[in-house]
């Protein structure tokens, strides 16, 4: 069972509000910034050549002898894609749950919440050379497919955020909410930039940066042979000798990632694998509510 009942009950009390720039279709919850087809009248405007004639208000013409076009409120649905990194490094964890475990629980929770609100939710699991997608749907039965897909994901291969960014840009025609669950251990310099470039395509991007306690604190003492979880690299070191330098490097990486996200106007949430998942989600949702 991926979804924790206690976690879900606590999240259910909150209203998930998307940003003003994201289109939605569920009435009453998500107002669209664009005017379109709907049954609810909004206002009149002077006719201009090029306006659709079917929207001319003939009754107004009868009264005022002028052409007016009727405009309507256009209610939308939220489309959200949960992007989960399934590279080998996501399999690391020292607190009972690996980073991948934490990522898919959070993705499943958010998908559950969105579908419950009649919004469309999908999921994409990515690693080097792999891109498995379940397109966004708002039907209740779609949640099961999402959960099944998440549950069968396993960590392996290299992280490839650039490829993920390209695939999403191609497959997401409308403005969508993109939630990315990854440790961002990608060696390529522009990988994070390309992910964040989705924001320039009007997508709402939320970054969940997953880190393990051991990565943050480097609690090793005796000489250790460290092996890579994505390839066959290995190195023998005395952890006490490099601890200071490692922590300096790793904290610099965390800071750089956070700063890049904020510079691109993306939400950034650092998630430790040992902290309660519901607290992370409530913090995230609460911050988004403040923006509306």
């Amino acid at each position: 069972m991926l979804l924790d009942a206690a976690t879900l009950s606590r999240i259910a009390g909150l209203k998930f509000r998307a940003r003003a720039v994201v289109e939605g279709v569920l009435s009453g919850l998500h107002k669209s910034p664009t005017h379109g087809q709907s049954v609810e009248f909004a206002e009149h405007k002077d006719y201009a050549p090029g306006d659709e004639l079917r929207h001319l208000d003939w009754k107004a013409y009868g009264k005022f002898d002028k052409f007016y076009v009727k405009r309507f409120e256009h209610e939308t649905n939220l489309r959200a894609v949960m992007v989960v990194d399934t590279s080998g490094s996501m399999g690391f964890g020292t607190s009972g749950l690996s980073k991948l475990d934490v990522g898919r629980v959070m993705a499943a929770t958010l998908a559950h919440l969105l579908i419950k609100q009649q919004d469309a939710a999908g999921v994409a699991m990515v690693a080097q050379g792999r891109f498995a997608e379940i397109p966004p749907r708002s039907t209740a039965g779609h949640l099961g497919a999402i959960l099944d897909a998440l549950e069968t994901a396993s960590p392996r291969g290299l992280t490839d955020l650039a490829m993920t960014a390209d695939a999403l840009a191609e497959k997401l025609p409308r403005r969508s909410l993109v939630c990315i669950f990854s440790d961002f251990f990608d060696e390529r310099q522009d990988a994070l930039k390309r992910i964040l470039a989705l924001r320039s395509r009007k997508h709402d991007v939320a970054v969940f940066h997953l880190v393990d306690k051991a990565e943050l604190e480097f609690p090793f003492e005796d000489p250790t042979l460290f092996t890579s979880m994505e390839d066959d690299r290995r190195i023998e070191v005395n952890p006490r000798e490099i601890k200071e330098s490692y922590l300096e490097e790793f904290n610099r990486f965390l800071e750089a990632t956070q700063n890049a996200c904020r510079a691109a106007d993306c939400d950034y949430e650092r998630v430790r694998t040992d902290e309660p998942i519901d607290e992370v989600l409530l913090r995230f949702l609460g911050r988004r509510g403040g923006k509306l």
Binding site: G91, K99, F185, F220, L225, F226, S228, E249
Partner: peptide, 29 residues
């Protein structure tokens, strides 16, 4: 010649970078 404990570690890049950075200092130490 004690065998070190083998530990799979996700942030291996940072370990490698730190080891490279501190190598000369560690040798002197």
């Amino acid at each position: 010649r004690r065998r070190p404990r083998e530990v799979p570690f996700a942030a291996l890049d940072f370990v490698l970078r730190s080891q490279k950075r501190t190598a000369s200092r560690l040798k002197l130490k």
